[in-house]
Each structure stands twice: as C-alpha cells, then as structure tokens.
Design a protein around this nucleic acid. Structure first.
Lengths: 134, 134
DNA sequence: GTTACTGCAAAGCTTTTGCATCCCT
DNA sequence: AGGGATGCAAAAGCTTTGCAGTAAC
C-alpha cells in the first residue's frame, strides 16, 4: 500500500477498502459491483467515491478500464499485458496471459505509431454451454 | 437491397437512408453520427428509428456493434472478419483486414468453446502525432 | 388487412459534477 | 494547516421503451 502514498495518492479508509477488494480480483468487476461489495463493510460509501477512486487508480496506471462490455465499464487490477476470453452469453471474462507477436502489414498501418494491442477472444463458457443444451 | 426484404426486413424510406449512409462507410460511426447525417436529408427522422434500425441490422448480422469506445457504441457495416487500429487521441478507427492465427493454450481455455476473436491495435495517428509535437 | 415501423416524449442506466464538510498527510 | 477526498443529490450522456398513428407487405 505504501507505493500509493509515495506517489501522493491519499489513502483513506474508503480507498483502502476498494484497493483490498480489487487485490487479486479476477472478476473484472464493474463500478456497480465494486460499490455493492465494498459498501457491505462500509455502509456510508458513496457511488461518487467509487467512481473517483477507480478513475484515480486508472489515471495513475494501477487499473485497466476495459471497454469489452457495451453496457458498462469493467475494471481489471491486472496491469501486466494480457488478453481476454469472453463468454458471449454471461459476459464472464477470463485472463489469457499469453503473448502474441502481432505485426500490422506496412501498407495498412496508415502512418500510425503502434503502442499496444489487446485481443478479445469470444466464446461460450462451459456453464452456459450446458444450459443451452437443456 | 432485395436481400433485406427477402428475410422479412421491411424497407421503409428511413431504413433505406440509413442503409445508404452505411454502405461502404469506413468511419465506424456512432448512432448519433448516423442520426445527424441521415437527418440532413430526412428532417423528420427520429433517434428511436435510428436506434431501432441499427439494432435490427445488428440482430440480423448485417452490422457489427463495436465496443471499442467506452463513451458510445460504434457501428461497422463491414461484416467480414477483420481487426481495428484505434488512435488513442482522436479515437479514429481504421480497418485491418489481416487474418491472424491465434491459438489459446489448452490449459488457459477453461473449457470454453471459442467462436472468434477481435484484435484492437492501439496507437497514435499521424495527424494527432503532429499536433502533439507542436 | 396485418404486421411492423415511425416519431415523440418520457424513462432508465451508467457516469459525472457541484459543493459543503471532513480528514489524511 | 492545507490540499485533497467524501458524500449527497442533481445533472448529463447514451440508449431504451410505450404508445398512438402510419406505412410496407
């Protein structure tokens, strides 16, 4: 936690609760999900504080904001380069920590300076596949 | 246009205007952009009709709904498999029609049935790169 | 004639903002 | 003490919906 304070990130009890909830979290939660979980232990917590905290962490590079879900933004505390596998039915997201070497053919690059990439794999998870078969 | 009618898609003047606007459109427009362009020639056009039409085309597989932009959904009439290169500054999106062979290691697949993938390449376009230098 | 689309306005969600108060450093 | 965070409520965007009227098939 010290690293946050060191860069001038003020550690309030609310922020610590959010940080603890996110730590090692693999669910790629939405702000709403973060709010409802954190406010269990912290009833006075407000939505605005969750949004502010998530935005502050994102701006400082401690949190990725995923635009995978059209309905809401989801957050990923894993900031190491990785990709995602998404269930089209239940929107579950799992991490794919594989590195792929992807080159864009020169004639398609359009003079862009490439800084990164992100692969979304789509599919149906075992649980949803079984429910469909029913 | 006949193909739409053949599957029970009712062709109204408003829908034809939307279809004509989208045809060969490479700008990946948002619903707002579609609306403002189509309503130039069709002043009585309503937002709801644009949304309904886009959703109907999407549901029938004639239009891709992109979740690349966190702020709004964008639409892509190019339904052939392809990827995207996105300018992080101005959010311009250009098509990358290259095919990449991407395999997910078995132990990471989690029993998913994989149905497809989509790569987002990130970068800065020449125009934005120049403005930054200034 | 049916069925389904249009247009308008209102409502629904997610996310952002203003502002007074409070508290971490 | 000072700067920044909190909490509340209101507002702002984007998208969806209900419903009466209308047009495509």
């Amino acid at each position: 936690m010290k690293k946050y304070r060191d860069i001038g990130f003020k550690l309030t009890p609310q922020r610590i609760a959010v940080l603890e909830y996110l730590e090692n979290n693999k669910e790629h939660p939405s702000a709403e999900t973060v709010y409802s979980n954190v406010s269990k232990k912290f009833p006075t917590m407000s939505f605005a504080t969750v949004y502010n905290t998530l935005a502050a962490l994102r701006d400082r590079g401690y949190l990725l904001e995923l635009t995978i879900d059209a309905d809401k933004r989801r957050y990923d505390p894993n900031i190491h380069p990785h990709h995602h596998l998404i269930c089209k039915v239940c929107k579950k997201i799992i991490d794919i920590p594989t590195e792929y070497m992807l080159q864009i053919p020169e004639h398609l690059r359009g003079g862009f300076e490439i800084t990164g990439n992100h692969i979304e794999f789509y599919g149906v998870c075992p649980e949803c596949k079984q429910q469909r078969a029913t």
